[in-house]
Design a protein around this nucleic acid. Sequence first.
RNA 1: GCUGGGGUGGCCGAAUCGCUGAGGCGGUAGCCUGCAGAGCUGCUUUAUAUGGGUUCAAUUCCCAUCCCCAGCUCCA
Length: 473
Amino acid sequence: MTTNEPICLFNTLSRKKETFAPIKEGQVEMYTCGPTVYDYAHIGNFRAFLFEDLLKRWLQYKGYKVTHVMNLTDIDDKTIKGSQKQGIPLRQYTDFYAAAFFEDIKALNIAPADVYPRATDHIPEMVQIIKKLLSKGVAYKGDDGSIYFSVAKFPDYGKLSHLKVGELKAGARVNQDEYAKEEAQDFALWKAWTPEDGDVYWETELGKGRPGWHIECSAMSTKYLGETFDIHCGGVDNMFPHHENEIAQTEAATDKTFVNYWMHNEHLQVEGKKMSKRFGNFYTLRDLLAKGYDPITIRYLLISTHYRQQFNFTFEGLESAKAAVERLRNFVRRLHEAEGTIATEKVATLTAKLEACFSGSMDDDLNVAVALSSVFDFVREMNALLDTNLVSKEQAADIGGLMMRIDGVLGVIGKVEVEEALSADIDAMVQKREEARKAKNWKEADAIRAQLKAMGIVLEDTAQGIRWHKEKK
RNA sequence: GCUGGGGUGGCCGAAUCGCUGAGGCGGUAGCCUGCAGAGCUGCUUUAUAUGGGUUCAAUUCCCAUCCCCAGCUCCA
């Protein structure tokens, strides 16, 4: 299954598509910025996680063994405020949203990461890096007791975001109270305790306080993946300052290249506007599920647009995605039910074309749109052959296997219901309808069919006899 | 203000300096069917924001204009 064709990925560092070459042959180590567990994640968050899932699945399809680390940010202003508001310990508060997050990604068929390190479980590792930065003179203790990274001491600062330090809009959103920093662009590695933090603090060699935001990713990624690893992903908003700062503090500490390939996904809009609570177009996954949408439909919609393209989420798009997924499932269902005896050579041609086109498109920086078009082309042409009984049962089984392999990347078809287990009473209804049909008692036949439909059983009369399948909600 | 991305048919969304620009969804007509569903076929589809320029040839390159979006210190 492994092909030798290289994968091209767009690297934010170079702003170019580059041929991907992992550090260790046949293995990929990737780190993706996970959620801050202070609330339910929204569909914009999931676009990022779905992009990363697609990337990982594609690497695996290509035969790489992927080690995937996704952090959970459980210590920052928002989690502290949230837990204080509810009057419960920080850990209890973040545990709740972490659990919700795991439920959500399961619903979206996102393959789990190998490790989900939490910031609060890695304070000693962070302290170690900060100590090293202090000893190297690239970090300093401010008047407020906090420890800051001195951006001026890291000449490469800005290489990821392509922002020049001197051109940053000084003071735009910088806390005016932060006089403790030597330079406005310096960022906190360790935040000294303040009364607002309440009982959230760690007594460390750095003093009483809590870690800055960026340091957790440096500490946890290098702990689980090493000082240099292959891929680091996140949303575009993380590019600056978060990832830029990660690079600065990590590379300053290790004197090694931190990450070879940086990949960032674009944001989504909802109905043409930035998603925000103010516009009333802010949706968590749960909001959409409550409206009755299948999470897999949402998955399909969110992966079907290229990850570096801004994506406009609409409910019309969701309906469209639902129909597209249904088309794929219908096709796979047909394959299961195929009873043909004639093997056609054309099948092999179409199959080869599909594999080559799908693979080639995905290799090109995950060009899903073209990859999907090759799948739909294949489905249409195969359906035509199935219509005329030019596919043998064995061929259909092979194609079914291929579709499952492809779905190992897309993750939208899943297990398609085949008619195996009909409960006795439902079976009796189907039989009854058949008798009514044979007697040309259409009225009764249609009534039973409607009744079954209401129970989620869809009947189909075909030339080969009656078929049924469960309707996917 | 600075930096970056983008404007393709009813909607979503590919691709490319030239073989009359994929695919999905929707609508519609036909085939099939008792009907429906699924599927197939045709049509919708002489769709590349606007105006210039370069070129044998541009949707693709350049310039200008209009519009949308993003980043500019803790929001995926």
